[in-house]
């Protein structure tokens, strides 16, 4: 291993699989490490971590994988995770530490940064090395996505979390080789203050929003749960999933976990259909990566049209049934 810092990414996995956000994060880290001519490491935390996960991290682009295996890391507990990462970072002294902006990353990254007395920029959409200063330029949306800010961190390690789906993972390459190192977390029970009683899954039936190839999303203008039932029909026909902006979730027309946006889920389907929603920046932050964007809205000035590829100005209650009928007639 070279003695110059390096880039460390904090990996995530569940049910024996490397998370897709982690493959993306490895791609981000790879670019930064190459620009600095440094090594890219990944760390995997867990209990009885499958060796295949470490190999997968290498196939995805990492040079070295640290595995911290501890029964206390079987579930995400912030105190255990941050303590283990703190030891690893103090020991290996990376220049850059990256997280994905996930349930775990958004919680662990700030705590780790403050514990290490360094700076962190959360929810970045672009990271690049400044060729002159060799520092990491961190671009993140601010003001709900209306503006972008570029930051630089003057202390080491430079820390950031990366918004999911802002990068494509590298091609998996089984010919890649790297070192797998078991790192002792040495976590003691006394360090752990928050305790997990249980984890409850609340998935909707059908296709998972983040994985759906087609997302049909409704806004406040849908008017009620009946309207969402029609979006469900359309989603079924297109083999997609239904999402919503914040108001329908808050009012209770659809469950909260349907929310797409800065504070909800981030989707990037092949086709996104936005129905009766204005396109607040908070929502756009969750879907702007979609490949084809279609918007249906009564208001020709609705902000969603600024991002849409195709738009129909009109009452969705009239537009959608005709669209639906045409799809059925002519599949």
């Amino acid at each position: 291993m070279r003695d110059d810092g390096g880039v460390l990414i904090c990996g995530e996995h569940s049910e024996g699989k490397l998370a897709s956000v982690t493959r993306e994060l490895i791609a981000v880290g790879r670019r930064l490490a190459d620009a600095l001519d440094q090594e890219l490491s990944a760390v995997l935390l867990g209990s009885q971590v499958d060796a295949q996960l470490a190999r997968e991290s290498i196939y995805s682009g990492a040079d070295t994988v640290y595995v911290i295996d501890d029964p206390l890391l079987s579930e995400y507990l912030p105190d255990a995770c941050v303590a283990a990462l703190e030891r690893l970072v103090r020991d290996t002294k990376p220049d850059i530490v990256l997280f994905a902006q996930t349930s775990m990353g958004r919680d662990a990254a700030p705590r780790l940064a403050y514990r290490l007395d360094t700076g962190v920029t959360l929810d970045c959409v672009e990271l690049a090395i400044d060729p002159e200063t060799r520092l990491m330029r961190q671009t993140k949306p601010v003001y709900g996505g209306n503006a972008h800010a570029i930051y630089v961190c003057r202390s080491k390690p430079q820390m950031a979390s990366v918004r999911p789906k802002t990068t494509t993972a590298l091609e998996r390459d089984e010919a890649r080789t790297g070192a797998i190192i078991q790192f002792g977390g040495a976590i003691c029970t006394a360090e752990i203050r928050t305790k997990l009683i249980r984890r409850v899954k609340e998935e909707m039936a059908g296709v998972k929003l983040e994985d759906a190839d087609v997302v049909v999303c409704g806004g406040r203008g849908i008017g009620g749960p009946e309207g969402f039932a029609r979006l469900e029909e359309l989603a079924r026909l297109l083999k997609g999933a239904v999402g919503a902006t914040r108001p329908p979730c808050e009012i209770g027309w659809v469950p909260a976990h349907c929310q797409i946006g800065l504070t909800g889920r981030i989707v990037s389907p092949t086709l996104y259909v936005g129905v009766a929603l204005s396109g607040s920046s908070q929502h756009l932050a969750g879907m702007s990566g979609s490949k084809h964007i279609v918007a249906i809205n009564k208001d020709p000035d609705a902000n969603i049209f600024s991002l849409a590829h195709f738009g129909v100005v009109g009452d969705y209650q009239k537009v959608l049934p005709a669209f639906f009928q045409k799809c059925k007639e002519d599949p």
């Binding site: 996930t102 349930s103 203050r193 928050t194 997990l196 009683i197 249980r198 984890r199 899954k201 998935e203």
Partner: peptide
């Protein structure tokens, strides 16, 4: 709140 549901936590 987590991505696919919630965690019941005591602290």
């Amino acid at each position: 709140i987590v991505d696919d549901g919630y965690e019941l936590i005591t602290l």
